[in-house]
Structures are given as structure tokens and as C-alpha cells.
Amino acid sequence: MRLGVDVGTVRIGVARCDPGGILASPLETVRRGKGDLDRLAELVAEHEAIEIVVGLPTSLSGREGAAAEAARQFAGRLAGRLAPETVRLYDERLTTVTAESGLRAGGVHGQARRRVVDQAAAAVLLQAALDGERLTGRPPGEIVRGSS
């Protein structure tokens, strides 16, 4: 089982997939800040996740900016808390836009949408990583080495 993590400045969306790695679904929104890594480590243990896919925000041209650097730093700290080679960064271009669109189409609006959009974006991210792995036969994204 894998977890998908969409790191924002205020909230962290978390999604999970089924044991076969076929379908991703929203799981939880974690408040960013003190205790966020603890909660993610708890979710990893609770769901017996073998891998965590963290979204790497890049521009449409593929360039990395401040948000990508923040995601890389967060992923490094998360990897430092978990077993080696269990955290990967994966391109998350347009995941939040796709999640917002899907929620609007599903009739989820206003505060209700804000409460779950991060989880939905994490599910879009994780689904893209799972689909990419099935298509290529290679693990998604890049391995993150732990940092403190």
C-alpha cells in the first residue's frame, strides 16, 4: 500500500491506494506545522505503507521554483523519519486544478470543497504515479534521501 502526499503551506493532503496499487482515494488532511511529520509517520504505520509519493510542484515548462524547493525539503525531513528509500517525489503539475474541477463537477462547493481539496489533490497525484508505474514498469519519480 502507498500513500500520496500533497504538501501545501497550510495543509497536507493525504491519499492512499488499495493493496494492489490500482486505485487511489482521499484519506485525510493534516494541518501543516508542529506534529505534521508525526501524524504522517502514524498514517504510514497505521496503513502499513511501503512507499510515500510526495508531490513535486513544477511549472508547466518543468522548472522548479520555491514551492518545489519547499516540497523537496519536506520530503527530505519525512524520509529522515521513515525507512530508507520509502519516499519518492513525483511531478504534481495540475493535480490541484484537476482535484478542484472534479469536486466542482461532483457538486462539492465552498467550505466543504476547501476541507477536502488537498486530499483530492493527493489522490490525483497518487493515481498518476500508480498509472505511470503500470505503463512504464518503473517506480514513479525519484527517491528522496532523508535529512534532518
Rank of each mutant, 00 (worst) to 15 (best):
E48T: 09
R115A: 15
R145N: 05
V53W: 01
S147W: 11
R32Y: 11
E92F: 02
L78E: 08
I50G: 14
E42W: 10
L60H: 06
L135W: 01
A79L: 05
E46I: 01
D38T: 15
Y90V: 09
G76V: 12
A123L: 05
P139G: 03
V53G: 04
S101K: 11
Q73S: 12
T96D: 02
L37S: 06
S59P: 00
Q127E: 08
G35P: 10
A121E: 07
C17V: 08
L135R: 14
D36K: 12
D118M: 04
D6L: 02
A67P: 00
S101W: 08
R113A: 14
S148K: 10
F74H: 13
S25A: 14
R16I: 10
P19N: 08
K34L: 11
I22W: 06
A45S: 15
I52P: 00
V54Y: 04
E92G: 13
H47R: 14
L135N: 03
R32N: 12
G8E: 06
I52V: 15
E48C: 02
G62P: 10
G21T: 05
A67D: 10
R104A: 02
H47P: 05
R63N: 14
D18T: 12
A45R: 15
L135M: 07
M1I: 10
E142W: 03
A123W: 02
I52E: 00
D6S: 02
L103A: 08
T98C: 00
C17R: 04
A99I: 05
A75S: 12
Q73I: 07
R115H: 13
M1K: 12
D38N: 11
V5S: 03
L130Q: 07
A112V: 12
K34Q: 13
P57R: 04
G65K: 08
A66C: 00
G137I: 03
L60A: 14
K34E: 15
A68L: 11
V44K: 11
P140N: 01
A24I: 02
V97F: 03
G132Q: 06
G106D: 13
P84L: 09
L135T: 02
S147C: 06
S61G: 13
R113G: 04
G21Y: 00
D36F: 06
D131E: 15
Y90S: 01
L82R: 08
A15Q: 10
D6G: 03
C17N: 13
